[in-house]
Design a protein around this nucleic acid. Structure first.
Lengths: 201, 201
DNA sequence: GTCTATACGCGGATAGAC
DNA sequence: GTCTATCCGCGTATAGAC
């Protein structure tokens, strides 16, 4: 909580570079250049590259949590909030075309590097997973089913991101987003039916 | 076509290491050690690392094409063949848990490295895409719809692979594979209805 | 806190002997 | 075709002056 601006700048620059070029391929020199400081100064803030990675993951988690809190405020119903998640694929379309999903690609890379921060990185997926499950639960789904639906939606989002990055086909993404929106609507509508019939009987 | 065994061994070892540790992270020393030759000897077969990458991509494409040809023989109907594709997620489950999808992860990495072989790597996805589209067409789907269905299935396969790699949850994968099988059945059944009604009217 | 200078190993790549 | 020896740049990391 020392509020060091330089440290925050380093983390922000590393976050961006790790996303665009990957963790392993990004060097201290790259980050130092992006921030505008010398390489030596670097080690006053972070002793190892892994420490920077931890800080970047921490920042990414915080950013995603903040985003989900905004969705909570903006969306009046659980369905609206879930659709905010789906819309990431459109809102961040340009970046995904170029660099893929920030969470999926980091997770994949750390898995291949067999990096110790693998588990930490999974908190990113976990944040979305539990949040989505909460929304489905709020929409009337049973606990286990809500978690399955959350995983299904996360899965489709990842799949679309991967193929959008490979094929650069925005129409494909738009089509799949529309299918996801329809799927969410159908799932929650049929549940509503069950909920209503359960009430009336 | 010189039939050099050493060359093939290098490509096979590189294929494996690129998959398990990533292209960038795999060094000449790693490959040389895996094959059991010296680093110097290496350059008699490949002048640059990129040449090895090209050869690995070529091998991967050939392997996948051969696999799809086996599916053509094994499956009597287009639906059977499509389900062979879906079942990769189960058959290769262990490897996917550890290293993800060989195609998706390579594509993502090359995108981040902004590597020239990016386009070549996309032939891997392309091979599955066109083959799946052919199967959907053979099952009675219209040309454009067949391609959309192929992309949809490829998307789901990628999404499942990514989350399977992240969460190591085999039950999740089994559940999603079952959903994909149902989806394939439903899509082809409804099409069959349309085809039948078109015939009888 | 920020800098310069530097250590040291590993990466890709080359030369040339056998 | 296979080897050893070697070049050179870049990577992480450290020491120490300002």
């Amino acid at each position: 909580m020392s509020g060091n601006t330089t440290r925050q700048e380093i983390v922000a620059a590393a976050d961006d570079l790790f996303y665009r070029h990957g963790f392993d391929h990004t060097s201290f020199a790259h980050i130092a250049e992006a921030v505008g400081i010398s390489r030596g100064n670097f080690y006053h803030h972070f002793k190892t590259k892994d420490e920077i990675l931890d800080a970047v993951i921490e920042k990414r988690v915080a950013d995603r949590v903040a985003m989900m809190e905004r969705w909570e405020i903006a969306g009046s119903t659980p369905e609206d909030r879930i659709l905010s998640f789906v819309d990431i694929l459109i809102v961040n379309g340009d970046k995904i075309v170029r660099y893929g999903c920030p969470i999926g690609t980091l997770t994949s890379e750390l898995a291949k590097l067999n990096h110790t921060a693998r588990g930490e990185a999974n908190r990113l997926f976990g944040a979305f997973r539990t949040w989505l499950a909460q929304q489905f639960t709020a929409a009337g789904q049973a606990e286990t089913e809500a978690h399955r639906l959350a995983m299904h939606l996360l899965m489709r989002s990842q799949g679309v991101a991967t193929l959008l990055n490979a094929f650069h086909d925005r129409e494909f993404a738009a089509r799949e987003v529309e299918l996801m929106r329809e799927w969410v609507g159908a799932v929650l509508a049929s549940n509503g039916d069950r909920a209503r019939s359960a009430k009336t009987t």
